[in-house]
Design a protein around this nucleic acid. Structure first.
Lengths: 204, 204
DNA sequence: GCATTATTTTGAACATCGTTCACCGAAAGG
DNA sequence: CCTTTCGGTGAACGATGTTCAAAATAATGC
């Protein structure tokens, strides 16, 4: 099985090269010919290893999600589970700060997660959706403390709202076409939004 | 000056045609040759009237912003200015619901506002930025009631945070790759987020 | 070890995209 | 009526992602 090994190696180098150009110049700078040149293979060889450039981007995004997950788990390591509302809100704030910092330090890779859209009618692969889901679970745990009697479906919904509210604030803050926000005040804004929502959830 | 008139007419028809295809099939379905065919002119004629397709998209987006502004002003018409925190929060919630409904009923045109990115190094035209600003002022007025002693810069910052938090929630809700959210529960989520943030702002 | 077959890599060719520019036709001026 | 000017035209240009006949390489049989 020499060829399988060789292909796996090529795939690895392609993903790495794609990640590098995305991190350097953004998703829109990804070009098939440039990739082939960087990796030292023919343009056609890309399609022996990967169905599309879209699929290649999916693999890159998968690594970004993994990196974000590592950042989140590293921040959570050694911390005990929240037991009351105050601790739960603090945990949510901490998570959102980790997200903010990750987006601020890996802006281009993080942007690629959302800029990339699959052609219409083509669903996201299962493994990709599941990776996204796993990230939500970090948010859902503290939310269960805040709303112990909420159904799992409701918890999932609120988690998505919270995540995308934070995501919106971070997106704005890192948008350079408006005046660029310093990271510290971006953190403040995120902290405020998350704790306000958290208190709102804790009340009823 | 017949030619100026003729060109203005062509520009108008081009914008209308572009708006139609975007509304029907999304921003990525916009094609120069198809546009020329629909309008009944040569491909090159487009560039007599418009610098780019990018500029054309900007004009379409400008109309979308105008439509959104009409929706907001229509909702505000005949309502008195908020005087206490409760009324201010209610006004913020109302604004966010208008935004939500607009995005839900004009999804593709609304998406084009955010999907479209100018090529790097090319700044947004002034008139476009100012149109965006004018929308923020609707949010800033109730915020001033909530935080009377905040500086204008602070108000502007909070307004952007609030807007983008709402935007994030709406974006998620209209993303069809996750299970599509019914509009009523999307409204609930937005209401919850905005009122929570509003209460958080009213406290100190 | 060589001949033959099967498989894998290759890069020129294809379709399509936005954009340009040498041309042509029609008005304007003498 | 000829000349001049100028705006619309669409073929041509340079990219793009993707494919596929052919070359190159590996595997197999004897």
């Amino acid at each position: 099985m020499k060829t399988a090994e060789r292909r796996e190696n090529l795939k690895e180098r392609l993903i790495a090269a794609a990640e590098k150009t995305i991190a350097a110049n953004g998703l829109s700078a990804l070009r098939a010919r440039a990739l082939a040149h960087r990796v030292g293979c023919a343009v056609g060889a890309i399609y022996n290893v990967v169905a599309d450039l879209d699929e290649l981007i999916l693999f890159v995004n998968s690594r970004t999600i993994a990196a974000l997950e590592r950042a989140v788990t590293a921040a959570n390591r050694g911390q005990q589970a929240p037991e009351d509302a105050e601790q739960a809100i603090a945990r949510l704030v901490q998570l959102s700060i980790v997200y903010t910092d990750f987006a601020a330090t890996n802006t281009q890779r993080w942007r690629a997660l959302f800029e990339h859209r699959l052609p219409e009618g083509r669903p996201l692969p299962d493994w990709y959706s599941q990776e996204q889901m796993r990230l939500f679970s970090f948010v859902e745990a503290p939310l269960k403390v805040l709303q112990p009697r909420a159904s799992p479906a409701r918890i999932a919904l609120v988690a998505r709202s919270l995540v995308s509210a934070v995501h919106g604030v971070v997106t704005l803050g890192l948008e350079e076409k408006l005046y660029t926000l310093p990271l510290t005040s971006l953190r403040e804004q995120v902290t405020f939004v998350v704790s306000a929502i958290g208190r709102g959830l804790a009340v009823p």
